[in-house]
């Protein structure tokens, strides 16, 4: 009986392999086969042929995508929004985490944390309802405040210019509690002896934050920002779709790759162009994460993701 080599190893680990089987099957079905399905971007899809049997059509799908004029717009929006989210969210979350850590009142800290975490728990549909409550032209809260003070109501759902600000604020609002708790955990794990030593050396509290707290947060910041950069070509579909919906008037300021891909697939049923846009997004995203990870690796090996 052959107890060594590959089959010996399989036999020895058959229970463990069996335990992995459901997860392996899951990722094969929902991740790896669709990954292979990326070839659709180069095909003229028809229902009988399916993903692998449909005829090739070269770069036609990409031609349509880039010539529609949407490619540049949705790419620009996706990347700019994500950069704004990364900067604003992280700065805000780190600031709040530091303040929460320094503020003395234990109860105040608990209650504040609980309240700020609340938006994380609701679905984007509910956020959409809140946005409606605030921004609707006829009955929205903002307009009812404006008119109370004798000012003209503003038509937010018809004015693209407001939306970059609104979306950045909403993203910050939704993630503030989650992110600040994560950073607070990192701050709490900093060795307190460092603070005490700094105090003895006569450092004031701002020097202490700047010289000890923030440098100690760098690994956490790098990991979180790296993960975010890996997703820089992915728009948060839930947010954009529920805030804006199919309101074409706002698309110039709000359409991202994900909402475009979704509309092309579901509304126009243009599987070819939708797959091409998805392919473009996946490749760009993959390249970005590899480059970002490589850069971090060069700077400091321990901080890289892989």
């Amino acid at each position: 009986m052959n107890r060594s080599g590959f089959w010996g190893e399989v036999k020895k680990n058959r229970a463990l392999l069996l335990m992995l089987t459901p997860a392996v099957l899951f990722f094969l079905l929902f991740a790896y086969v669709p990954m292979a399905g990326i070839v659709l971007a180069f095909k003229q899809y028809n229902h009988t042929g399916g993903i692998f049997g449909s005829p090739w059509n070269g770069l036609d799908n990409f031609k349509f995508f880039f010539e529609s004029g949407n490619a540049w717009l949705v790419t620009r929006n996706t990347v700019l929004y994500n950069i704004a989210f990364i900067v604003v969210n992280n700065v805000l979350q780190i600031t709040v985490a530091i303040l929460l850590f320094e503020v003395a009142g234990k109860w105040f800290r608990k209650i504040a944390q609980t309240v700020m975490f609340l938006p994380y728990f609701i679905s984007w549909v509910v956020v959409g309802a809140i946005a409606y409550n605030l921004f609707n032209f006829d009955v929205g809260t903002i307009n009812s405040i404006l008119t109370t003070f004798g000012m003209e109501p503003i038509d937010i759902y018809n004015t693209p210019g407001y939306w970059p600000v609104i979306l950045v604020l909403v993203a910050a609002w939704k993630s503030l509690g989650y992110g600040s708790v994560m950073y607070l955990a990192a701050i709490t794990s900093i060795d307190t002896e460092m603070y005490e030593a700094a105090e003895i050396d006569g450092a004031n509290i701002f020097q202490r934050i700047w010289k000890i707290t923030i440098p100690n947060l760098i690994p956490t910041i790098i990991i979180l920002v790296l993960l975010a950069i890996g997703n820089i070509f992915r728009g948060d579909f839930g947010m954009f779709y529920n805030m804006v919906g199919n309101n074409g008037l706002l698309f110039s300021a709000t359409d991202v790759i994900d909402t475009f891909v979704f509309r092309t697939l579901i509304s126009s049923n243009d599987i070819g162009m939708s797959a091409a846009a998805g392919f473009y997004q996946s490749i760009l995203g993959f390249a970005t994460i590899l480059i970002a990870n490589y850069a971090v690796r060069k700077y400091d090996k321990d901080h890289a993701l892989f």
């Binding site: 399905g37 659709l40 993903i51 891909v261 599987i271 797959a275 997004q281």
Partner: peptide
Amino acid sequence: FFFTTLFSGGLVPWYLMITKY
């Protein structure tokens, strides 16, 4: 498992996998 977080086939093949296959 980890690789699936780095690269994906996008919405369309996933959608077709679930509805068609």
